[in-house]
Write a protein that binds this DNA or RNA. Structure first.
Length: 448
DNA sequence: TTTTGAGTTGTTCGA
DNA sequence: GTCGAACAACTCAAA
């Protein structure tokens, strides 16, 4: 039987997996995951632990056949092909800057070795680069992108094929690493857990998603982002279950945002670090020692603004943060502390188990006003009123900040107003003053 | 071709 | 307390 190496990357599942179908259709499959030092060295413990747990679940679902190797992908893949006698490597397409660079190096290496390299499908319903305006250029605004994206449509989920695995123990595999020390309370790994999470969300919250998705004190969001990030679920599988109601349309639209940002980053890989809008390059940001000290306080959840600090504590404790709170803490870093958005983005990528380079960097750019379809410069979140609006009873902040247990509702988002009895931190900056400072810096930009 | 209106996520101020 | 205006500049699609 001809053999194919199936190189798993961000598609750690057997269901609805186009590349798996392609590999299984022509013969035996050698399932491979390469532990790339690039990922291992930049990720925090929760992120690594979640990856390893998903690898264990995937391995189990294929009867222990998963081959795991640490090292440079191009070397390892060529090696595994030689050892297994595979004449073909199949994987899904990756559209992020590092992934594309890595895959083109792998393609060159395999071409030299005379091995066929097929990239089939991707982690998106519609591949980046496909949705375009009438004149062939990509969209820079979400709403028109989203219309065409939905119009374009996507295939029905792919049925799980029957597969003859040809992997471990015949093919040498390293053990999947032990979890790094990690006290974070992570979502359960594996396809079954992911589907359970989807069903629970679908049956309890999806029909009210448009109303409750903004409330961090309510279980109103799907919390599927970690599974989408590692491809434990495919977005196509979820889209197939949605109807035409308002609530479902809003959820579909959120999946659309993920695809929009992947498309934007694909067309402009430099925006992984740089401002999409170059005119924003000259905005004044603080990077001095005081700025660095403030950054540390932000990371540790010690800004004195409860909704900001609660979010940062939730991130460290669970590897996840509610979307509304992500916007609030990001706005605080950029507009109250005047730090480069890249600092916050990097910290998020290290700690978020759902950290997706396209969604993360462009979410940050949106808040910073440097990105596609960016937030207007004057849209500056007030951490007190955001707290009062979206966490009116203080349930969310009390969950993550025990010192606020006895602080009454009416001051729970501004506890310094409770006077000397308040056990919580004083704010590290004055929001009203820093808001003015941000507006001034933006004005300088348009003058110069 | 040109014009026009709308565009994820907000806040403050003054009437 | 409520409400509308103001806070830019640019992209896109429809008229």
């Amino acid at each position: 039987m001809p053999k194919s190496v199936l190189w798993f990357r961000r598609d750690l599942r057997l269901a609805d997996n186009e590349a798996l179908c392609a590999a299984a259709a022509v013969g035996d499959v050698v399932p491979l995951f390469v532990l790339d030092p690039r990922f291992l060295t930049t990720s925090g413990a929760p992120r690594l632990a979640f990856l390893f747990r998903n690898l264990r679940a995937l391995n189990e679902s294929m009867g222990g056949a998963l081959v795991v190797r640490t090292g440079n992908p191009e070397e390892i893949i060529a090696q595994v092909c030689r050892e297994s006698g595979a004449e073909r490597v199949v994987c899904a397409k990756d559209f992020a800057p590092y992934g594309m660079q890595r895959d083109s190096a792998v393609a060159s290496k395999l071409a030299i070795e005379g091995i066929d390299f097929q990239q089939v499908g991707s982690s998106y319903a519609v591949e980046p680069g496909v949705v375009r305006k009438g004149d062939g250029t990509p969209y820079a605004v979400f709403t028109p992108f989203s219309k065409i994206w939905i119009q374009h449509g996507w295939p029905a989920p792919f049925a799980t094929p029957s597969v003859k695995w040809h992997g471990a123990p015949e093919i040498l595999s390293e053990p999947i690493p032990q979890d790094p020390p990690c006290s974070a309370n992570l979502p359960e790994a594996g396809e079954e857990a992911a589907w359970n999470m989807w069903e629970k969300f679908r049956d309890t919250a999806l029909d009210r998603y448009d109303e409750t998705r903004n409330s961090p004190d309510v279980a109103g969001t799907s919390m599927l982002s970690p599974y989408l990030r590692f491809g434990v679920l495919h977005s196509r599988s979820l889209l197939a279950e949605l109807n035409e109601t308002k609530a479902h349309a809003v959820f579909r639209s959120e999946l659309g945002w993920r695809e929009f940002y992947a498309d934007v980053l694909f067309h402009q890989p430099r925006t992984v670090r740089e401002n999409l809008q170059r005119k924003m390059d000259s905005i004044v940001v603080d990077t001095d020692e005081r700025a660095q000290q403030r950054f540390v306080l932000w990371c540790e959840g010690k800004t004195g603004y409860p909704i900001v600090d609660a979010g940062m504590k939730q991130l460290l404790a669970t590897g996840w943060m509610h979307n509304r709170v992500r916007m609030i803490v990001a706005s605080f870093l950029v507009k109250d502390l005047h730090l480069p958005w890249q600092w916050g983005a990097k910290y998020f990528m290290k700690h978020l188990v759902d950290g997706d380079i396209a969604s993360n960097q462009h979410g940050w750019q949106w808040t910073a006003g440097t990105g596609t379809d960016a937030s207007p410069y004057f849209r500056i979140f007030n951490p007190i009123s955001q707290g009062e609006k979206f966490d009116p009873n203080g349930t969310y902040v009390r969950t993550w900040i025990p010192e606020l247990a006895d602080t009454p509702n009416h001051v729970v988002h501004a506890p310094w107003l409770a006077g000397l009895l308040n056990p919580y931190l004083e704010p590290i900056v004055d929001h009203a003053a820093e808001r003015q400072e941000s507006l001034i810096r933006y004005k300088q930009l348009s003058v110069s």
